[in-house]
């Protein structure tokens, strides 16, 4: 039986890249490519923006990284291992090493802030004592310790996204994927979330942010990969949001 996929162990064996797309194409319908011949390498500790207009293939990249879908052509490597070859029982272990936040937060409305964050640990069967230690730590990191008993509908959009971030981080992921994390937030809250993502990145987590937010991308001076019609049209260190229009 093949060993479980442990991203930390795999990463310790290699220098880079942590994420690699090699000639990846994805067709949802025959003849209509969502992405085409994508070649991207993301290194450990990088902060990367993926930009592009709707339908440019940004979310497809996220779904491929999570192994929710498989490429029609090419290979996706994470920590040097082709994730398309992961067996079904290995996928859950693999996903524990990746934190994800979404535009719509995806919080459980019937649970309070503490339980929403603890949920991520409970579903991976973490011991309760670890949950009691780790959840407050994450809530302090995102500045919501005082809201731990509040329910999602009692929080602002920015606060909800911070809960989602705490949930994504509570299992100590090596990679954090953020799919339009500021899409539902006002500028002030958007900046707060981006600052948090930057802090998380400084602690060593590789952060990949899919976004439409030109102001943030232009201001943060990070690596920017631009997609158009499913193809990479630019990949710049300290890039700007400028080639997104289809």
């Amino acid at each position: 039986m093949a060993a479980d996929f442990d991203i930390n162990r795999e990463m310790s064996k290699i220098e880079a890249p942590v994420i690699s797309f090699e000639h990846v194409s994805k067709e949802y319908q025959k003849g209509i490519a969502a992405i085409e011949d994508i070649n991207i390498r993301i290194y450990k500790g990088e902060f990367v923006f993926i930009v592009g207009s709707s339908g440019s293939g940004k979310s497809t990249l996220i779904r491929l990284m999570l192994k929710e879908i498989l490429p029609s052509k090419g290979k996706v490597f994470v920590a040097g291992r082709e994730i398309g070859r992961l067996r079904k029982y290995q996928v859950s272990k693999y996903r524990r090493s990746i934190g994800v936040v979404f535009q719509d937060f995806r919080l459980l409305k019937d649970r309070n802030v503490f339980d929403n964050v603890a949920f991520a640990q409970r579903v991976v069967e973490a011991p309760e004592r670890l949950i009691k230690r780790q959840v407050p730590k994450m809530l302090s990191l995102v500045g919501l310790m005082d809201k731990r008993k509040s329910f999602p509908n009692e929080l602002s959009g920015g606060q909800q996204q911070r809960v989602a971030l705490a949930r994504a981080l509570v299992n100590n992921p090596v990679i954090l994927l953020a799919d339009e994390p500021t899409g539902n937030l006002d500028p002030k809250n958007s900046w707060e979330i981006m600052k948090l993502l930057e802090d998380i990145n400084k602690r060593g987590t590789t952060v990949v942010v899919v976004t439409h937010n030109q102001e943030i991308v232009d201001s943060m001076q990070k690596r920017v990969i631009t997609l158009r019609n499913g193809r990479v049209i630019s990949d710049e260190e300290k890039g700007r949001y400028r080639y997104a229009k289809n």
């Binding site: 999570l66 929710e68 079904k88 029982y89 859950s92 272990k93 693999y94 996903r95 524990r96 090493s97 994800v100 995806r106 459980l108 949920f119 991520a120 579903v123 991976v124 069967e125 949930r167 299992n171």
Partner: peptide, 16 residues
Amino acid sequence: REEISIMSIIGATDFF
């Protein structure tokens, strides 16, 4: 539905 979708992404096993 929402909970199951999150569980799957977070890394819960099929059994769980």
